[in-house]
Design a protein around this nucleic acid. Structure first.
Length: 226
DNA sequence: GCGACAG
DNA sequence: ATCTTGTCGC
C-alpha cells in the first residue's frame, strides 16, 4: 500500500514531542470508516534484547471468517529508545515498512497501543493513522493515562476513560471475567465504532484476532532472524 | 516536590 | 517488550 507522508526521525526527546504537537492537529476524529468493514489489518512488534533487533508484522484478516488475507513481516535494527509517550518513534519505522509491503489497503488498522489516550493526545494509533491516512484504533493492555470505573464482569461491559475532563478512550471487557482492554480512537473513527470493532474482532480471547495473529508472526520472524 | 509511566 | 514458577481449568 502507499504511504506518502513521512517526517524526519527525531534525534532528541524535544524533537519527537515537537513532531507530535504538529501532527496531532492532523488527526481526524470524524468516523470515515466504510459502512461495511471487510478487512482489518493488525499490527504488532517484538524485540530481542541482545541483538537489538526489532520485528514488525502486519496481518490483514477477512472480518467475516477471520481468515488471513495478507501478511508481511520485517526485521530491522532498533533506532529509538523506549520512552513512555514516545514509543511510536520506536515502532513506527518497522511497522510502516510492513504496511508498505502489503498489496492491498485495509478498511481499518488495529494498533497495539493507545491512540488519543496519550498525554498529548497522539499515541501510536493516531500516528499510524495520520501517516497512512487510514482509519485506525488503538488497543492497550494496560492503562497509560486517565481514570475510570471498573466495568461490569460480562463481555461488552465498558467504562469511559477520562483524562483532564475529556473522554479519551473506553475500558472495554472483551470476554466474561477477563481483564479489560483500553480502546481509544486513532484516526477517522468514532470511539463507539472502535469499541464495536474491537468486540467483533475478539470472539474468543481478550485481545483482537488481528493483534494475536500479528503478535504470533513478529515473534516467529524475530526468532528466525536471531 | 513525589510518583506514574503504552510496548 | 521480555524474563520466569507454579497453578488453575478445560
Amino acid at each position: 500500500m502507499d504511504i506518502v507522508t513521512a517526517h524526519d526521525r527525531p534525534n532528541t526527546t524535544a524533537e519527537a514531542i515537537e513532531i507530535q504537537e504538529t501532527l496531532r492537529g492532523l488527526v481526524d476524529r470524524e468516523d470515515r470508516c466504510p459502512q461495511q468493514i471487510l478487512t482489518v489489518t493488525g499490527l504488532d512488534v517484538a524485540y530481542d534484547e541482545g541483538s537489538g533487533l526489532i520485528a514488525a508484522a502486519a496481518v490483514t484478516l477477512d472480518t467475516t471468517d477471520f481468515r488471513v488475507v495478507e501478511k508481511r513481516t520485517v526485521v530491522s535494527e532498533v533506532s529509538f529508545p523506549y520512552e513512555p509517550g514516545l514509543f511510536a518513534f520506536r515502532e513506527l519505522p518497522p511497522l510502516l515498512d510492513a504496511l508498505r509491503a502489503l498489496d492491498h489497503s485495509p478498511d481499518l488498522l488495529v494498533c497495539d497501543g493507545h491512540g488519543l489516550a496519550h498525554p498529548r493526545r497522539f499515541g501510536l494509533a493516531c500516528h499510524v493513522g495520520v501517516v497512512t491516512g487510514l482509519p485506525t484504533l488503538g488497543v492497550g493492555k494496560t492503562r497509560f493515562i486517565g481514570k475510570h470505573g471498573e466495568p461490569g464482569r460480562e463481555r461488552g461491559a465498558k467504562e469511559p476513560l477520562v483524562d483532564d475532563g475529556e473522554v479519551v478512550g473506553m475500558v472495554l471487557r472483551t470476554q466474561d471475567d477477563v481483564k479489560p482492554v483500553y480502546v481509544s480512537v486513532g484516526h477517522k473513527i468514532s470511539l463507539d465504532n472502535a469499541c464495536r470493532q474491537v468486540l467483533r474482532l475478539s470472539p474468543a480471547f481478550r485481545q483482537p484476532e488481528t493483534t494475536r495473529q500479528a503478535d504470533r508472526l513478529c515473534r516467529a520472524a524475530l526468532k528466525e532472524a536471531s
